[in-house]
Nucleic acid binder design. Structure first.
Lengths: 230, 230
DNA sequence: GTCTATAGCTGGATAGAC
DNA sequence: GTCTATCCAGCTATAGAC
């Protein structure tokens, strides 16, 4: 086999294929466009145009749009889950103290909002993508999220139960559901509260959001047990 | 003009047009299918097939898909807002007591989950539709929701501020945002907590959801003021 | 006024040249 | 291995027969 050209392609260590760069460009562009505009709202064609590739390349590398979504998701998701586990381990190492609950919540939210990537901006983009996935296609989202996040979420629920011995399991579960809801709603940013407050309150600023949500959600978990069973 | 047939169409009182029944059938079917499957996921064609109408009828009555969405929304939305206002008025008439906060929250959530229709089932369907609208097309949703709900939401935020004099405005706004997030996430039902708990916790049962969320969210509002400004 | 037929697009996926 | 050209299905919206 004759090499057509040695131009501009250094003999990178593990890189076997030339098309690897195209593949990465498609994934990068897809992540950006999906998180900005939504999964179903963005066509493969528009991604490929933006990435400077063609439909055949997408089919060659991924086979289908759903597979592309899955690859965009997989690239960062496990890292977010791992960051959550590591941070929970750190928090639980310390002695029990008055702010344990806050620290558990923060250890869950911060990787969720900023984790999985090398910069916080890239992490935010991935957070928006996961939230879009949840609301756009909950069937696909259910499969992808369960595989990667069930284990770490179970550990967090266990840690919350231990930190709040007065609460029943079902109470912890409902409040964890509420925590997830606040996070997804904050990241998808429907803009209701911005509209209601003339932008005084702006949850799209996720750094400020964390500082408000951590103490607020801690208060939620500290509410008395629900006197109710069905 | 000769009446082609007098069969099966009683001379209903205020009904001027014969096509009124078709119009209502389209709206009813659209509400059901939009709330079950999502707004963008459902095509006009499928709605019309289910309703036994044709594309021309839809164009004649509504002009476009967006107008149909707006009409489905308008039919019940104002009634939900009115129910919220009425119930807030009732709550505030009573003397201040230990459960005022819970009653304000309940007065906001229950019309949101069940209101706007003659049966609670129909109200739940409409709640799912609004949540779908929020996540599917936040541009359209923003316009529709603002017009109908801004006034009542402002009154609730005012009532919450009065009931919680230690909280700053911005704290109340963030917590109201969290309240909205929990409601939308509960109603859209992505099913994460069901998956995490083997269906022990099931937020799609909105009646049980209210009983858990009211005390939980009250705890959230009662959290100490956030020691943080940006 | 009602409906059939279709225009005009856009989507994902693919065959086949090179 | 890469890309052009195309297939085919689905969508909204509308023209035109009756």
């Amino acid at each position: 086999m004759v090499q057509k050209s040695a131009l501009a392609r250094p003999p990178a260590s593990g890189m076997a294929k030339a098309g690897e760069a195209t593949r990465q460009a498609i994934i990068d562009t897809a992540e950006k466009m999906f998180s900005d505009q939504g999964i179903t709202a963005v066509s493969l064609r528009s991604i490929l145009a933006e990435a400077g590739a063609n439909t055949a390349a997408a089919h060659y590398h991924f086979g289908s749009k759903e597979n592309l979504i899955a690859e965009v998701f997989a690239r960062r998701a496990k890292r977010v889950a791992d960051e959550r586990m590591d941070r929970l381990g750190e928090v639980l190492k310390r002695d029990d103290d008055a702010t344990l609950l806050e620290e558990i919540i923060r250890a869950f939210i911060e990787p969720g909002f900023f984790g999985g990537a090398d910069t916080r901006e890239a992490g935010e983009q991935f957070a928006r993508l996961r939230a879009r996935l949840t609301t756009d296609d909950s069937e696909l989202a259910g499969r992808l999220l369960s595989d990667v996040f069930d284990e770490s979420s179970h550990r967090y629920m266990k840690a919350l139960s231990d930190a709040l011995p007065d609460l029943s399991k079902i109470d912890v579960q409902w409040r964890f559901h509420a925590l997830l809801g606040v996070m997804v709603y904050t990241v998808t940013g429907p803009g209701r509260i911005q509209s209601l407050t003339d932008n005084a309150c702006d949850p799209s600023d996720l750094h400020t959001a964390v500082e408000h949500l951590v103490p607020t959600l801690a208060g939620m978990f500290r509410a008395p047990p629900t006197l109710f069973t069905t």
